[in-house]
Design a protein around this nucleic acid. Structure first.
Lengths: 223, 223
DNA sequence: TAGATTGTTAATCGATTAACAATC
DNA sequence: TAGATTGTTAATCGATTAACAATC
């Protein structure tokens, strides 16, 4: 866990995948692995794996390789998965439901402690054992429970004013599923965006890549 | 739409964001924009925007800038959003439900035409107006409808054998929400992964970054 | 025309890969 | 010890930024 200074996002984004792979190997009964073997299984270069790991410390042994269980645990610590950061979810729609179920089951460093919505049809129901509260109760709840992260599963239009409220209540990190640009608004906030539609559109691009689209001969052009 | 050769994923992943921003500007009544102004609004450099756009052609006018509606339409064409690629969804759990709802509403180049699950409780219900079919009906359905993309909202364990079936039925592109490594298995497949838990873990890392974790003094060590 | 802003080439920066001495 | 594989430095590659001539 030692060094950890100015680690690039490229490296950080690979850590969960290492963690998953090592957990899988551990479950399969593999006790020892070299960077070469791991690289072949993961489709990376051995150099990159060693380079990545050495951002955080030397976890291997020359001539031997890495102990799977040890390395898995180290990366878990680096990621901070044994934390239980208090978090709330805003928006109990289809996506909110899925995320609540996800956060309740997977171990990931966060504990969901409150869900909020503004629709009377949603208020009172439970998702993953947590009751959906009226958004009007948000202030009081946050002052009492002091959550540090908010999951935003609400439409773009709703985020503008709500994010101000959340930010002033001390929530400065967001798992953002909306299209609202939080990191533009709060430069010091920690924002992780999940843009499902953007993701799908890149898939569309790659499918279209071979044949020309050509369905629209757009008759645009400036005066 | 012209050039389009060896466009890097870095560029491709920015396209949907350009598209969103331009759509927004258009809706706000903005008709004309320079790369400088757009860069300030999006938190990029003007150089990057011009560089990105010029991968596909010259859409601007020197001394004037870009016509918002025209550029928006061009990027839409580049992404291929007017396609209606037939797609199927496997897994009608919480996440499957959310994705079905999403794909039914947003315009994104795909048309969801079938949903499959293996649970008797799910078979027969409708998601976004589409009935959930028994996974046993998959072969017959695919031979008739010829979908080209599959959304995978099933657990890792289920993907191994199912992906073989899908691949042999001519489905070579996947929107993959599972942790199964499809691109390792089918190097020629087009795979877009959405790993929600990985995303959340990077957020956890960044939150943990300031204070040391130190809750576990792991007593590991070899031989 | 003069001013503005593009398209494009060159310079810089960062990330990945290769090489190799250290060492288990 | 000899063989293997790490940790780390150097070389390469790619992506971003800066600069500027072209031109509307």
């Amino acid at each position: 866990m030692s060094k950890r200074e100015n680690i690039s996002m490229s490296v950080i984004r690979r850590l969960p995948r290492y963690y998953r792979f090592l957990t899988h190997l551990k479950n399969m009964g593999v006790t020892r692995i070299s960077s070469k073997e791991l690289s072949e299984r993961m489709g990376l270069t051995a150099s990159q794996i060693r380079q990545d790991l050495n951002c955080f410390g030397g976890f291997g042994q020359q001539g031997y390789g890495y102990i799977v269980s040890q390395l898995q645990e180290e990366i878990g610590n680096i990621l901070g998965i044994s934390h239980e950061y208090k978090s709330i979810l805003i928006g109990a729609g289809n996506l909110g439901r899925a995320i609540a179920a996800h956060m309740a089951t997977a171990v990931n460093g966060f504990r969901l402690c409150g869900i909020f919505d503004n629709s009377p049809q949603k208020i009172g129901i439970s998702l993953a054992g947590i009751p959906v509260q009226d958004i009007a109760a948000l202030d009081e709840f946050c002052r009492r429970e002091k959550p540090v992260m908010a999951v935003l599963c609400i439409p773009r239009e709703a985020v503008g004013s709500l994010s101000d409220q959340l930010y002033s209540l001390g929530i400065h990190s967001f798992w953002n599923f909306s299209h609202f640009d939080l990191s533009m608004k709060y430069p010091d906030a920690i924002v992780e965006n999940v843009h499902l539609n953007d993701s799908l559109m890149t898939l569309c691009y790659r499918l279209s890549d071979c044949g020309q689209p050509e369905e629209k001969q757009s008759p645009t052009g400036r005066g």
